[in-house]
Simulated assay, not measured.
Amino acid sequence: MNRLFRLGPVLRARKAQEDAAKGEVVQSRQEIRDARALVKRRQLDLAGADAPTEGTARAMVASMVARQSMAATLSGAHRMVADAEELARQKQAVLTDAAKRRRAVESMAERHAEAVRAHDLRTEQLAVDEMAVTAKARNAARGIDAVSEERASTLRHGNGSAADREDVARETANSVAAQRPAVNLADTRRAIDVTRATLSLAAKRDGEPAERTGEGHADDRSRA
């Protein structure tokens, strides 16, 4: 299995695009704040320029023209705020789209990482199972079960306290004794008696030909 995520460069590019979109959103929000601050200044300027109530006609006309100019400037500031807010919404939409595209590739990277972890776990489990099967087969060939092997390991390596080793030794001895066939003393006694009787009978049979031979020689001497 390929452990390297092939779309890694794409993911880095998507993150860079998202970071750039975040920067533009921050800048657009700053432009909104600047436009709103300009509106406040223009409003104060317009409020401070009161219409003249006395003076020459020329002065009154000039004052009215100035107020109209301030009002136009204030209106322009409001349009700047509206434009900045619209631009901020567009930048936010771009950022949202960039985040979605980055998240799509990132989800693929997470699934790939999860697949790699699952593959590693399966590989480790197979290795552990193979080791267990090999150890079991080796112990079976040696005629040692798992319990006996564990007890023997404790006795060989001295694991645990002295009391633990003594308990293990006692359990091992009891286990070995339990595995030995039971001996019936009565059957053994009968077997010994039968063996003795058989040997005695065989000895008697071996002695009969010799006696018969001796009797034959005695008869021959008497006839002579």
Rank of each mutant, 00 (worst) to 15 (best):
T188C: 09
S148W: 03
V81F: 02
P52D: 11
R67S: 07
E110R: 15
A177W: 01
R33M: 07
T96N: 15
A197M: 03
A202F: 05
A47I: 01
R165I: 05
S69Y: 03
K136L: 08
R117D: 13
E24T: 05
L121M: 13
P52R: 15
R212Q: 13
R142I: 01
L95F: 05
P209N: 00
A109I: 04
M131P: 00
A51V: 08
L7Q: 09
V65I: 07
I192N: 10
I144M: 11
Q90A: 09
G8R: 12
A163T: 05
A82L: 08
A51W: 02
L121R: 15
P52W: 07
S153V: 02
H119N: 12
V128L: 09
A203K: 14
L74H: 04
R138G: 05
S107T: 14
A84G: 13
Q92K: 11
D164G: 06
Q17M: 13
A62F: 03
S28Q: 12
G207E: 15
A132I: 07
S75L: 06
S28E: 11
A59L: 12
V133R: 01
S175K: 09
V61G: 04
I192V: 13
E149S: 13
E166Q: 14
A141W: 00
E85P: 02
L199A: 14
E31I: 04
H78W: 06
A93P: 01
L87D: 12
